[in-house]
Amino acid sequence: MISILLVGNGNVATHLYTAFSKADSIAITQISSRNLEKIPSADLTIIAVSDDAIAEVSSKINNKFVVHTSGGCGISELKNKNNKGVFYMLQTFSKGKDFNFNEVPFCLEATTKKDQQLLSEVAKAIGQKIYTINSEQRKALHVAAVFVNNFTNHLYKIGNDICIEHKVPFEVLLPLIKETASKIASLSPEKAQTGPAVRKDKKTIKNHLDLLDTNQQEIYQLLTKSIQNSVD
């Protein structure tokens, strides 16, 4: 039985606690990051807090092995005195939205081989996709994730705004969104690219720009230029 202390109560911590609670090989305890006066000992302490709080929270923990769950922070952000590591899950987490941890990539980093093995064992207790990823690689992955997730979701928001303004249901776009996402499982994103920017349909591009507000026009033109530069 591996004992885990989970520090935090946000989206990531909530989903981790639920998953670990169902794992037979894990004994999980959860505390708030605001309640660090009496910290229980554990084989592994997972800090699931905001990036800006990692240094302060970790500096107050003396347990033997402490990891954070951030994709954007290096292992050096941890300020505890003992062994350090990272337990990063490359997924978007929202409270109230269930998902299968078996589909979640676990990107793990530790300073010793023994700790790396422990992290792998912990990850395998709730998931299947295990990767050894160092801090520089994880930083690049996190930036890539912002493009394919956060920025893409903002583009969904803009698309929804356009639909609302012109009184058409956003749900009409859902099959297209699903097909676009599934297509890149078998095609590279470059080969999967379609649309007026690739075809350089100047008339269509102008018609689109005439429908958009100033902010939307700037985003449309920037992305169109980027697409065209990538295929020239």
Rank of each mutant, 00 (worst) to 15 (best):
Y131Q: 11
P189D: 05
L141Q: 09
K81T: 06
I54F: 10
S94E: 02
P196Y: 07
N149A: 15
E179L: 04
I158K: 15
L211R: 11
L141W: 03
L118R: 00
K64V: 02
E190S: 14
H208A: 14
H68N: 12
V168K: 14
S32P: 04
V12S: 14
K81Q: 14
S230N: 10
G195V: 03
F65D: 02
E77R: 12
T194K: 08
A185W: 00
A48W: 05
E37F: 01
D43I: 00
I133T: 13
H154L: 15
D43K: 00
D51R: 10
N11G: 02
L222T: 10
A197V: 08
I130E: 07
T180S: 13
G127H: 02
T152A: 13
N80S: 12
T29V: 06
A55W: 03
D201P: 09
K183A: 07
I2D: 03
P175A: 10
A125M: 05
P175V: 01
S59Q: 12
L211P: 05
D115Q: 12
V172W: 09
H154V: 06
A181T: 02
N35E: 03
F93K: 07
T214F: 15
F87P: 07
P105G: 15
N153A: 08
I39F: 01
E171Y: 08
T18A: 15
L90I: 03
K97D: 00
L176H: 01
D201M: 14
E37K: 07
K84E: 09
D51C: 14
M89F: 12
P175G: 02
E77Q: 15
S188C: 10
G8Y: 03
K124I: 01
S182K: 02
Q91E: 03
N134W: 01
F99T: 02
V122S: 08
D43W: 00
D210C: 09
F170L: 14
H208K: 08
K178C: 01
G71I: 04
A145N: 12
D161Y: 07
I4Q: 10
V49S: 14
I219Y: 13
N35W: 00
Y131S: 13
I219H: 13
N150P: 08
I227M: 11
I130Q: 08
Y88P: 11
L5M: 06
E179P: 00
E136H: 04
D52N: 14
Q117S: 10
A48Y: 03
I26C: 12
L212Y: 05
T112M: 11
N207Y: 05
